[in-house]
Design a protein around this nucleic acid. Structure first.
Lengths: 146, 146
DNA sequence: ACGCTAAATGATAACTGTTACTGATTATAA
DNA sequence: TTATAATCAGTAACAGTTATCATTTAGCGT
């Protein structure tokens, strides 16, 4: 499959150099439908670039976020998760295994959020984050049997 | 003033021992209308219990959260913030000074959220977190002048 | 009131996630 | 091809938090 969806060219356009390592981080993020942590990206990337360092993974993830090609999800305890999709959307996070998934939310949420924003008088709101937390199907299944 | 709203008795009821330190952490959280970090709680508590240790502050904050008398807000980078109010409500976080405030949101948000939850098929959703991020009035004022 | 004992403490070491620094590589332009 | 600046691997440093352990202490029974 295409893998990075032409993102490598875009990174290049913005003045960045397209190294093997950067491309690998990018591909890893784009090819996975989960929202991996930096450590998980590191593990994935090591399959194709075995001697990459953790620091490089962190640096490239940060760069992708700065360039606007990924977003960082730093809710919850522990490590940040990274998401190849940029548009703001809802997530669900498992309190047991800390997995994060996307939620397809109807746009009906938007007007409600506008109203909520109005409550923040004097603030310049630039983003919103909506997250549900609970047990994912796998973890709630395990819980059932005990 | 009452300070801890009788929480010390409740802690005691649940089998915990009410030490000077625990009471001080509790009072500090209840007496402040902000959402302090553990380090900020530590500073407040040191005024009344000068030789308390950071570890004890962390321990008691965790205990209060486990007992259901406080909640931990661990969105965003850096340290967690703690909130003496337990009921789930919206927050706004300043991306500059990382201050967190409560938002009074009309209950009209609830039906929209129900719908959103329905998108998480197979999940047992136990909580939701809605957070707006942007610049607080003070920080956006500073930004204006540069 | 007085000890007993488990819970809680202070001090500090260890740990996790992340960033900064180093000299060595390497992608890109000329 | 060569020059050079961005990026790299490796590692040390950092912040926030948790664990460990010897000491203290709250709350119980007597």
């Amino acid at each position: 499959m295409a893998g990075n969806n032409g993102l490598s060219e875009k990174v290049h356009e913005r003045g960045g150099r397209m190294t093997r390592q950067c491309r690998a981080v990018l591909d890893a993020l784009a090819s996975v439908d989960m929202h991996p942590t930096a450590a998980e990206v590191y593990e994935i990337v090591r399959e194709t670039v075995p001697d990459i360092s953790q620091g490089t993974v962190y640096r490239n993830l940060r760069r992708l976020v700065e360039l606007g090609y990924a977003q960082e999800l730093d809710y919850g305890p522990g490590a940040s998760h990274f998401d190849a999709s940029v548009e703001s959307h809802c997530h669900a996070r498992c309190t047991n295994c800390s997995k994060i998934i996307d939620l397809d939310i109807d746009s009906s949420l938007a007007p409600c959020l506008k109203e909520a924003q109005a409550a923040a008088k004097g603030w310049q709101i630039s983003d919103q984050r909506i997250e549900f937390e609970g047990l994912c199907p796998e973890c709630s299944e395990v819980n059932k049997s005990e």
